[in-house]
Design a protein around this nucleic acid. Structure first.
Length: 266
DNA sequence: ATGGTCGATTCTCGA
């Protein structure tokens, strides 16, 4: 099973890029973030032409997450949209579904600036995510948490750790909150296969940061123990960041060997 | 300390 994640920064602007990625790599599930459309505006028919079904939790202007799942693979089951007991005005930042393994797709709040209201919201959202995981799934079942986490875990995930230390996306409270989520029972699939520094998934549009190699690794695929044991590969696909009018994020994709998930439902 | 660039929607915000 190939699971991919991509913050597309507007699905209307990026739908051709997404379709090109689908046609080249044929992931079984692609998790999208920052689609920036309501459900009725999502280009589901366009992706159906490429053989993909859409499951959407949209929002006008901001946020919005979705799954594209290959026809012939599992259909999305037990779909969850957002945390329970959120109001109608809640952000669309979490969608989860069972495709064999459970896939939880998050667009974690950016946090704006350390000490801001948005930063406090980010830390609170991270705590709610951990509590929701505790209440919803067991770490002994195959669960894959993917998306734009908006936190770089370690120095080797940041182009200039000294410059970034204490700043949003790399502050200590964010890293501690990330570790609390990880301690639910996740393993970083990328680090199972790549130890090197300087592998990034996001580069700011400003100041030619992509051309200058100034990025962060903030998009992740994390797997619970049985899913991590089945993880045969995980990599960042930088090429779409070079395309015309790119997203500021690159896709990340993992391969899970479902045959290794013996004792668990596919 | 500031600003740089995108995208969606205005006469600016969020990233």
């Amino acid at each position: 099973m190939k699971i991919a994640t991509w913050n597309v920064n507007s699905i209307r602007t990026r739908k051709e890029h997404v379709r090109a990625f689908l046609e080249e790599h044929r992931p079984d599930v692609l998790a999208l973030q920052e689609i920036k459309v309501t459900d009725d505006q999502f280009p589901a028919a366009f992706f159906a032409e490429a053989g993909y079904r859409s499951t959407v939790f949209g929002q006008k202007t901001y946020n919005g997450v979705a799954f594209l799942a290959r026809e012939g693979f599992h259909e999305a089951a037990d779909v969850v949209r957002g945390f329970p007991d959120e109001g109608e005005d809640a952000h669309s930042r979490l969608i989860a579904a069972r495709f064999g393994p459970v896939v939880v797709n998050i667009y974690l709040p950016n946090g704006s600036e350390v000490g801001s209201e948005k930063y406090a919201y980010k830390l609170d959202w991270m705590q709610r995510l951990r509590e929701w995981l505790d209440a919803t799934y067991g770490a002994g079942e195959p669960v894959v948490l993917v998306g734009d986490f908006n936190v770089a875990p370690e120095d080797r995930d940041v182009h200039d750790p000294e410059a970034w230390r204490g700043r949003v996306l790399f502050s200590e409270p964010e890293k501690e909150a990330l570790e609390t989520i990880r301690a639910w029972g996740f393993t970083d699939c990328f680090r199972l296969h790549h130890e090197e520094a300087g592998r990034f998934s996001w580069w700011d549009y400003r100041m030619n940061q992509f051309r200058r190699g100034m990025g962060l690794r903030i998009d992740h695929i994390w797997a619970s123990r049985p899913a991590a044991e089945a993880c045969a590969d995980c990599d960042i696909f930088v090429e779409p960041r070079r395309w015309e009018r790119p997203s500021d994020h690159a896709p990340v994709m993992a391969e899970l060997d479902l045959g290794a998930l013996n004792g668990h439902s596919q």
